[in-house]
Design a protein around this nucleic acid. Sequence first.
DNA 1: GACGCTTTGTGAAAACGTGCACGAGCGACA
DNA 2: TGTCGCTCGTGCACGTTTTCACAAAGCGTC
Lengths: 234, 234
Amino acid sequence: MAGQRTRRRIPEATVARLPVYLRILSERFEEQVVTISSEELAEFAGLNAAKVRKDLSYLGSYGTRGVGYDIEFLVYQIRRELGLTHDWHVVIVGAGNLGQALAGYNGFGDRGFPVGAIVDVDDAKVGSVVGGVRVRHLDELAQVVQARNISIGVIATPGNAAQSAADALVAAGVTSLLNFAPCVIGVPHGVSVRKVDLAVELQILSYYEQRRATAAPAAGLRAVPGEPRRGVTA
Amino acid sequence: MAGQRTRRRIPEATVARLPVYLRILSERFEEQVVTISSEELAEFAGLNAAKVRKDLSYLGSYGTRGVGYDIEFLVYQIRRELGLTHDWHVVIVGAGNLGQALAGYNGFGDRGFPVGAIVDVDDAKVGSVVGGVRVRHLDELAQVVQARNISIGVIATPGNAAQSAADALVAAGVTSLLNFAPCVIGVPHGVSVRKVDLAVELQILSYYEQRRATAAPAAGLRAVPGEPRRGVTA
DNA sequence: GACGCTTTGTGAAAACGTGCACGAGCGACA
DNA sequence: TGTCGCTCGTGCACGTTTTCACAAAGCGTC
């Protein structure tokens, strides 16, 4: 148990749920709760207990039968597995509407991802201070990334600038990207990309909304899959 | 072909990709391109051609063998299927940092989801104008929702207010929610919820980042699944 | 120390999503 | 009209994810 090698591969679907467990467990820990059962955790996460147990089993056999999981220990294990034992500074590319909002959003820093830098190509924006960080020019990206040892970049540019932003980030040594621009970006092998597209989310909601309106106007409302990874429609 | 009944159920994974196709097709259409093959579309979307064809086949047999798909027609079909033949006004709950950014973000209105209203509980914020819309009090929610026939709500409150925001939205008649608060919310059957959690996205990136750092420090960078639904790590 | 209650951990099965491969259909051209 | 080349639509096999069901294991009590 102590020598638990963490080299077993964790399925992607599970990786996406671990942060959810982590948040719930952290909250419970704040409230002095000591242990939690898979049943309870599933309740809070909007999942079923079997899935929770299987997910947690990828971390190791850290539960106690008849009792549940020790919250503090589990928090530690999940944080370790997710690489959250230290802060990750992020660099935001694009100081427009979205970039400024992200920089000012405390949710980043609070959860271990402080904004280490913001860059933009627009000289009018360079020098201004957003969320406590001074906006620098895109040309300084590589320098900033290396100075602060940044490996996560956030793309908050308009769509037509996203690919070049990605290229600049990768060239600067960033290996993980969170893309808010409404377009698919290509990156070299070994670089991770995740994409958040608000319009896409709304369009998906629109589909189910429209479906309810036209498919069964008379019949009762149908259940909807909701969102795949961590949602609840219960 | 004309009588294509749209009642075949479209898999959720496909629904999530349709907006991506739609954006790409719309761009191509703007550029006067008339037809597109599944191969090309796959290229732009960062997927493989077979998946594109299978996805599009759920809409009906709208392609022409030996030629490809008529872009204009396909745009129309996807928009129809997604319920994008008319605008959907959305109401934002929470006029804080995030709510203001969302209201000011043109990406919503541009893609058919104009912000119809913003509400907050804080009297200090009520009355101010954000993104061209005056902030109203949460108490007026039901009235606003009905006046503008709003069925999509965006939760941009702090986590501890998210559930009550959701309850208020549902009570007001909203049946689709986009939740930005870092917590799982419960809703009645028949209400769709999608969740966007920036910290979760970063934590997932952290996992792969950490994995690259510790798992194979000497070996070459490994490919990473990236994001499941519409990502590219190529 | 045996018993009963609870909850974990995990095979096995079912459901779901993806990718391959190929037949079928369309357009072009002679 | 026949042939050729191209691309769609889809059956099938594969991999991944979810769900089920139950043996194994801890805890409290007698």
